[in-house]
Amino acid sequence: MKSGSNLEKVLQAGHFALTAELGPPMGPSDEEIKQKMEILRGNADAFNITDCQTAVVRLSSIAAAIMLVQGGMEPVMQMTTRDRNRIAIQADILGAAAFGIKNCLCIAGDHQKFSAAGKLKGHPGAKNVYDVDSIQLVGILKKMRDEGLMEGGDPLDVAPRLFIGAAWTPMAHPLEFRVTRLAKKVAAGADFIQTQGIYDVERFAEIMVEVRNLGLHEKTAILGGVIVPKSAGMLRYMDSSVAGVSVPKALIKRMSAAGEAAGKDKKQARRNQSKEGIKIAVELIEQLRETEGVRGVHLQAIEWERAIPRIVEPAGLLPRPHV
């Protein structure tokens, strides 16, 4: 056992793992986190706490992750290299480990210019850090855990026990390099991988052939990403504007048809689409489960945590294993 985390144990016992995302609020609201915790409790093996996703300021991932630990739930603390240099990264990792956080997902994070891409003002004038990249971050955590050394070479009093994760966008340009990217993350020390949301499972399955040929699926636990669709508009947006996400036309059509079935009743149209989105998510989970080399799923219902229990139940993923 590298970390003794629940996620690690579930994977090691050979179960199909399940993680779900919990986005911290844009305020110091422990109430909101507690509400989300109660919605999600028991519905996954570990819960990803996002780290200022889309570069928008939110309650810190480390603080929210501590709340989960204290509430008896297991977090996957996400950590971007956008906002911290290697000194802050390691200090935060030690702090997190002291509070019982065992899983960390290493990512570069969205560029700060992203924060003003939507309706928010964000902080596009912020200075970014990027002292290290996500692969180097994985390597730093591995060195701390396995060698008991800081990146600079100083010894740690006690090595933190960590289950190290990395993200992977299998279908982003340049396609021919994406499996190499995964291989580098694995070589750097990624114990588990959470992929970008996958809608085109057929294409993903083709990429997984290459992954299996390299044996990467045995060296790391790949969890396929599922982003729960809420509407046809969201699917179209994801298809056209989110890098590395392509949505088959048939899925968009299906979602549109669900909305149109409600006629002029807009509320009903939204309800229909939500229902259809949940059905689609269940189907995606099933398809990913059948994809050889995939050892779990990572569920993201963005600002819609209530959808998670409605998906994992019909997907046959409950109850979660006690290991």
Binding site: K113, Y130, I135, T169, A172, H173, F177, R181, A243
Partner: peptide
């Protein structure tokens, strides 16, 4: 690279090879 990455592209490269920014 907007993030001065050293180990390859992040997941933000668009289909036509542009940066996420």
């Amino acid at each position: 690279c907007a993030k001065n990455l050293l180990n390859g592209p992040c997941g933000g490269t668009t289909e036509d090879g542009m940066c996420e920014i």
